[in-house]
Write a protein that binds this DNA or RNA. Structure first.
Lengths: 155, 155
DNA sequence: TAGATCGTTGGTGTAAGACAAACCATTCAT
DNA sequence: ATGAATGGTTTGTCTTACACCAACGATCTA
């Protein structure tokens, strides 16, 4: 009869919370990133490309869940600053293979360094270990999302 | 001489990650919330107001880090749907004291219920306990941000 | 060779939100 | 009591980040 101790806690929804924190971060990130010549959404793209370089624009659009035409503009920005490189795929010359350049990787590193101050402020209520836990949870949550979508089935 | 065992791990920046997850959530939340007549940003406001009801619009603007004039529009939306109530403050009749109505509280609950499917999808890589941890970290991170700013000093 | 696919360009439309100016009601300081 | 400051509101302009559509060239595939 006695099943496992069903905690039966009302499962908390953190959707609004994440949106809120993201906004607080983005507002500050914008100003910190401005001297580097990029904006928050560029930072996302660079981060994705560091994890998964050598990706087609279409796959990038899927990962970012953005319209393809807007990805073009995003990559135009990044390529104009030499942060990203579009190569023709050898196997399918219609495809562009997008990759971070050395300049891009260095700028990303600088951006993250600059972001430290921002996160120190927004996450001032969290300890270092908690921040690391948060990072790991987010990393894990986005893991399958940033995996290639070459498999069959719903992608 | 020997200081504490400096772990010296490169501190991970999760700014871009949060932005990314927030976008994924928002895209889906938008469609789930549409039948309820609200949008993600309304959800944030409702959530804040549940935690800290009886707040002035100015304080709400500070918490949301939004321009005051835009908060007016946001509250107009919510008040038009009777989700929120603006009372005149008794102590300072210039102020509006904003509070969630019963209707608002119920709609918020329904919204969170509807959000379950969204979070199930976006956080499919996380277990229940991990999701709860994530929630608690975010909750804690926003705790001081949503506290009133009546104290002196930088707010 | 015909049709599909990848990226690109250009254009339209919407929504969030910043910012400024002017206004009313109210409070506060002199 | 009067004048300045404050909280909220309205209106209006501007920017940005998208989504979406149509058309095109290059390329691949059947």
């Amino acid at each position: 009869m006695s099943s496992l101790p069903v905690v039966n806690q009302p499962p908390h929804r953190c959707g609004a919370l994440i949106d809120y924190v993201a906004r607080r971060l983005r507002l500050r990130t914008e100003t910190v990133l401005a001297p580097l010549g990029i904006r928050p959404r560029h930072l996302i793209a660079l981060t994705v490309l560091r994890d998964r370089g050598g990706i087609s624009q279409q796959d990038l659009a899927k990962i970012l869940e953005m319209d393809g035409t807007n990805v073009v503009g995003l990559l135009n920005d990044l390529e104009a600053e030499n942060l990203v490189e579009r190569r023709r795929s050898a196997t399918d010359r219609r495809r562009h293979v997008v990759e971070l350049t050395d300049v891009g990787a260095k700028l990303l590193a600088r951006a993250e360094f600059a972001l430290a101050a921002v996160e120190d402020e927004v996450f001032s209520d969290l300890g270092d270990d908690q921040r690391e836990t948060l990072y790991e949870l987010l990393q894990q949550a986005t893991k399958s999302a940033t995996e290639g979508c070459r498999e069959p089935g719903p992608c």
